[in-house]
Simulated assay, not measured.
Amino acid sequence: MTSRSSASANRLVQLLITVIVAAVLVAAATGLRAALAPHLGLLSPFMIYIAAVLAAGLIRGPLCGAIVMLGGGLIGYSLFLSPTGQAPPGSVLSLMLFWAVAAPVLVTANELRVQLRTAMNRLTEALRRGDRPPPP
Rank of each mutant, 00 (worst) to 15 (best):
Y49I: 06
A27R: 10
A34D: 04
P89D: 14
I67V: 15
A87Q: 14
E125G: 07
N121F: 06
V24A: 14
C64A: 15
L16C: 14
V101H: 10
L95N: 04
S78Y: 04
P62H: 00
A22T: 09
N110L: 09
T118F: 11
L43H: 09
G130L: 07
I75D: 07
S44H: 12
L127I: 10
P104H: 05
C64P: 02
G65H: 12
P88Y: 14
A23G: 13
G71D: 09
T18H: 06
P134W: 01
Y49T: 05
A23F: 13
L95W: 11
R122A: 15
A100M: 10
I75W: 13
L74Y: 02
I59L: 15
N110E: 04
R128K: 06
L95Q: 07
L40I: 04
P104G: 00
A56N: 13
G57P: 04
R128H: 14
L43I: 05
V26F: 13
V19P: 02
G85M: 07
S44K: 07
E111G: 10
I67S: 02
H39E: 04
S78E: 08
I59G: 01
I50T: 10
I59V: 15
L81N: 05
I48V: 15
M47E: 13
N110W: 03
R33T: 01
T30C: 09
L32R: 05
L112S: 01
V68E: 07
L16H: 00
L79C: 03
I59P: 02
L42W: 06
T124K: 12
L54R: 11
L43A: 13
A37Y: 03
A23M: 15
L127Q: 13
A29F: 09
V105I: 14
V105C: 13
N110Y: 10
R129C: 08
M96E: 03
D131L: 12
F80H: 07
G72I: 07
T118D: 12
I75V: 15
F80G: 00
F80M: 00
V68M: 14
L70P: 10
G71S: 15
G76T: 02
L93D: 10
I67H: 00
S82R: 12
G65V: 02
A51K: 06
L97E: 11
R60I: 08
A103M: 01
Q86N: 10
Q86F: 13
L116E: 06
L70M: 03
T30Y: 06
L32Y: 00
L106V: 09
